[in-house]
Design a protein around this nucleic acid. Structure first.
Lengths: 318, 318
DNA sequence: CTGAAAGCGCTTACAG
DNA sequence: CTGAAAGCGCTTACAG
């Protein structure tokens, strides 16, 4: 009766407010959710909250959603399709009003089915075939293109690339951007220079070792996400090489920490927080019942030039 | 009836399972929660999920809780007491079965009240006066003591310290560890060498500038958390100084990223993930009805020696 | 052993 | 305009 659903006489209102005070009454959200058929809760499914990229996204979403009185249930998938599926199912049982998800790419149908069944969903960081759901991504191909061009402009011709997991849209797009840049510069992409880093630190390190052990060694390496970049630098250290002197590096993803340590990493920064924020706003519209066709938002990446690409060809300095 | 609450004849069971299949039945968790008076949901209140320290803690908690079929509602407080209070209230209305919280320190009574009212709570990262709640912290004083001793052993006598927000237990403890080390080495703590960095990047930078502008300049600075360390390095850069040549640095908190960039940061690593994991386990016991007195778990910090303290007094190298 | 009723705490129509 | 009943989808005692 206090939900402003109709007029209440001032006298009764005072009486009721008094009672609320006296009894220390707090409404029960569970009962309210059951009856009102909405929980004011949203599910947030990310690969790994310990990865700062996703943590920033979550923060962006949290800020807009909490301000609108929504809570958020967080789940990590670890890129495991079965975990993703289990979480999706649980979240539906818990009757979340909406879902923001970084899809593994392996559960397309269940996601579309859930959406058709009335669950608003917005995809984040990765697209899904068909583009049937609201999506917020970054211009991955453009970003990778920029990074590779930057390397090419520094005179590099043998540029290795560490790519992420297959089945993730960013992997394809970033690889495409890399190849596009090479081709536009009259080079033909060499398959031996592209290695799968599995989007992880260990995978990145292994891929980097393969690249560094090639003869002749590439003069530059483009690592396509933050975790693999850590692996790359681990490998560089292990091989007792020095960046940018022995090997130039361009990367994807940025963090404050990277701005103060050496070598200053030249990287493609993504608007992490903004991704989460925009996703939450899209979701908000859907939860409010907006019915138009799926919106695909592509946010611009930004090349941050620091020092890891050197000022020219690395070995020419030596 | 399928909740294993009593025997069901095989025939009926088959019939029911068939119906579940046919109707695509999924239990409604909201209705279940209302009736069963438990939600299988836990609240997680941290300062800022975008801070990798807290993200790791959340991950640790998520792993043990999700395995036990609990979901987790995430809230950021931004160290704002009113946000903390609002979240606590909301979480209670949403009838979470338990709460893991990094307390701001400003809402002690409400936390104790909620706990008395039957809400299991475990404190994380920070203690609260009275120690009335289960708590998982790190040996902050011991850690700060170790870091400071390390600096002292490298010949430093004028050691600045950037401390965090007042009202947070870690701030006091880390400051105490710093002073203890000085005293044990026959030095008397100099108040002009301790600056408040407000536990933030900007605050850390401002505090660092004050320290770096002192005449004579301290030969070393101990920064007591990850954010303030970023600020410290920003200030070092701004003043065109070089670590460890011009100024030695010891820090608190570690990250994989720090292991591959220069200068290798000598720091006190906390077992972030473990903190979250242990907290979740404590909470689990409480939610299961365990009734003994509050358990205060103090996890050991670990000194990671890299290169930011140099091999001796910084200016003697110059 | 099993069916049917009561009730969790709200909100939402429905009478008056 | 306002009170009282019905009902959200479950679980939990209670009969049979």
């Amino acid at each position: 009766m206090l939900n402003k659903t109709r007029f209440v006489s001032p006298a009764t209102e005072v009486r009721i407010r008094q009672a609320i005070q006296d009894l220390n009454y707090e409404p029960d959200h569970i009962a309210r959710s059951l009856r009102a058929r909405r929980t004011l809760t949203v599910g947030l499914l990310v690969s790994d909250i310990a990865n700062p990229f996703y943590a920033d996204i979550v923060r962006g979403a949290e800020d807009v959603l909490s301000e609108r009185h929504y809570s958020l249930i967080l789940c990590d998938t670890d890129e495991a399709p079965e975990r993703e599926l289990a979480s999706l199912r649980l979240l539906r049982q818990k009757k979340v009003d909406g879902l923001i998800i970084v899809p593994t790419g392996a559960n397309v149908a269940p996601l579309y089915e859930a959406n058709s069944a009335g669950l608003p969903i917005v995809l984040v960081d990765r697209k899904l075939p068909g583009d049937l759901l609201d999506t917020v991504v970054v211009g991955d191909q453009a970003g990778a293109y920029q990074a590779t061009c930057h390397l090419l402009e520094h005179g590099h011709r043998r540029i290795g690339v560490i790519i992420g997991k297959a089945s993730i849209s960013t992997t394809d797009h970033r690889r495409k951007g890399y190849e596009q840049a090479l081709i536009e510069h009259g080079l033909s992409p060499d398959p031996t220079l592209v290695r799968d880093g599995h989007s992880s630190i260990e995978g990145g390190a292994a891929a980097a070792r393969e690249l560094l052990d090639l003869a002749p060694r590439p003069t530059a390496i483009f690592s396509t996400n933050n975790l693999m970049t850590v692996g790359l630098f681990l490998a560089i250290k292990q091989r007792r090489l020095c960046c940018p002197k022995d090997i130039a590096v361009a990367s994807f993803d940025d963090m404050v920490w990277l701005s103060v340590f050496s070598p200053g990493l030249t990287t493609i920064a993504q608007p992490n927080y903004e991704i989460g924020k925009r996703a939450a706003e899209l979701l908000w519209d859907r939860m409010a019942g907006k019915q138009d066709s799926p919106r695909i938002i592509v946010l611009p990446p930004q090349l941050i030039v620091r020092e890891s690409c050197g000022h020219g060809l690395p070995q020419s300095d030596a």
